[in-house]
Amino acid sequence: MKKKKKLLTFPSIIVLTVFAILPLIIMLVYSFQSDSGSSGVTLENYTNFFLKSVYLKLTYRTIINSLAVTIISLIISYPLAYFMAKKFKGLKNIVMILILIPFFTNQLVRVYSWLIFLQDGGVLNSFLQSVGLIEGSLGILFTQGAVVIGLVHAFFPYMVITIYLALERVDNSLLEASSSLGASKVRTFFQVVLPLSMPGVVTGIMIVFVPCLGTFVEPRILGGVNGTVIGTVIEDQFFEIYGWNFGAAIAFVLFAMVIISMTGLSRIGRRYDNE
């Protein structure tokens, strides 16, 4: 009986092994082969990547962009999550539902909505002109700024949720205990609330920063020619340039960045884990 039940887990594992693990291994193998047709194992794709300043610059830009998105998301999310967990009462559920709803709308639709909102002559442009804040065109679309805005929009709700859940777990009696021991609200926040919500903050950072590294649709649409990041370079290798092996190598560099940031962040997260 027990043995038979164990078999139930196998189909999922087989699907994952065949369609995720195996392809990743094959991709790793491809990344060590040359695009020029010569056979045999070569490091040329990786040396190409790491020796050309243009790729290093793109890597740097990708990381900076992702960091910017993460920090802005944090600035928006922490206070919001804090207010929801500690200040709002009945309102809390409504705000939570409103934050969750966009998860269920198509991601491309959301990117597109920023495209038409930010475009020169678009609604934001007309609005800012009519209140006299700017003259002429806005010029924000097709910049890194537009990409960051679009990505923050796509990812910050995840962060609100992880931080909110961490704050919910901070028992109000701890705040009262701190107050009864003579701590002001500000000190209570920095000495009790913030440290105890750090696991949620770290998870939130992970859930925003890591996917940002691998985006390619948002930078392409909102950044235009200025939106080139690692993701779009990889896409080009497959659809425009047909340098598949080189593409595979870049994808692995990206993969390595993802793994490094995940392990780093979960290390930090574990330090705050009191459970």
Binding site: A20, M27, Y30, T215, F216, F238, A248, A251
Partner: peptide, 12 residues
Amino acid sequence: PWLILALSMLLF
């Protein structure tokens, strides 16, 4: 990133 998964499957 799904981009990586998609690519690896394409290569597969």
